[in-house]
């Protein structure tokens, strides 16, 4: 396996790696340190990277005056509801896709691929009109509905991969032992599927938590805003007004998905979920 690498090449490789680390890491570091800076340090013309007098004031301000706490509660409700519903609805379908060969199955997968091509605007206008007729515009349940539909294709695809990895022999063995189909599903398949279900739920949760465009169109009432909406309004059209609380809020809003991605990191790097999140 090892083809020897010359020292000069190694040095160049490390230099390149350092370049990548700076490009990828510095923006994050800057946001983090800005969140801990006091008001004086924030307006300095040549601020230092590390805050001289770290403070938690920005976090307090972000939570108390900008309605971030309330938005976080909205976001939490929407994301949990969307994630649980998505998985409940896609679990039976994923099993069917993995275990039976129906024409519908290939149509479904074809749809997943084709739907990638269409810009959101084509979907969101009619969806907006439908939701309006159902009086679901400007409501959190309306947003949940959109998120379920939106993350379904991917959840389906992920889950059916997990079902496939369960050996069919196990199910057949249970069937010869006299277990009914339902019993087989509940006693054999579901327990083995648990890690896959957890991963898919977490993933759907994060896509709902991070989503911005649908929320922007569907929710107009600031009272109902999700976190990304509130933070985007926070920025304002004119420009960044208060850097400290903004950075603090942004940092906090990233935490849930960072934690989830930390848990799922192995799967991500192994490429199973590659190409999962739309930019």
């Amino acid at each position: 396996m090892n083809t020897r690498t010359r020292p000069a090449v190694r040095v160049l490789q490390y230099l390149a790696l350092a370049g990548y680390l700076i490009f990828l890491g510095f923006p994050l570091l800057w946001m983090l340190t800005t969140a801990f800076k006091g008001p004086k340090e924030l307006v300095e013309l040549h601020p230092s990277l590390v805050p001289e007098h770290p403070t938690l004031d920005n976090f307090v301000t972000a939570f108390t005056t900008q309605g971030l706490a309330h938005s976080a509660w909205n976001s939490l409700q929407v994301s949990v509801a969307a994630a649980v519903l998505t998985v409940l609805v896609s679990l039976p379908a994923a099993y069917a896709l993995a275990r039976f060969r129906t024409r519908l199955g290939s149509v479904a997968i074809g749809w997943v691929l084709v739907s990638q091509l269409f810009p959101f605007i084509l979907l969101v206008i009619p969806l907006f009109l439908i939701l309006k007729q159902l009086s679901l515009v400007n409501t959190l349940p309306g947003l949940v509905l959109v998120y379920v539909v939106w993350s379904l294709p991917f959840a389906l695809w992920m889950l059916q991969g997990f079902v496939r990895s369960i050996p069919r022999d196990l199910e057949e063995a249970a069937a010869t032992d006299g277990a009914s189909r339902m019993q087989t599903l509940i006693r054999v398949v579901v327990p083995l599927l648990a890690p896959g279900v957890v991963a898919t739920t977490l993933f759907s949760f994060v896509s709902a938590w991070n989503e911005f465009f649908f929320a922007l169109v569907i929710l107009q009432d600031p009272e109902k805003s999700t976190v990304p909406l509130t933070l985007a309004r926070f920025v304002g059209i004119q420009g960044v007004v208060r850097l400290g609380p903004l950075a603090a809020g942004a940092f906090l809003a990233t935490l849930p998905s960072l934690i989830v991605f930390g848990i799922l990191q192995r799967r991500l790097t192994s490429g199973i979920m590659a190409g999962a999140v739309k930019g």
Binding site: Y20, L24, W209, N210, L231, A253, F261, G279
Partner: peptide, 12 residues
Amino acid sequence: LALVPWAMPPVI
């Protein structure tokens, strides 16, 4: 570090 941007909401 290469994975972090993936976890971040576009707004952030």
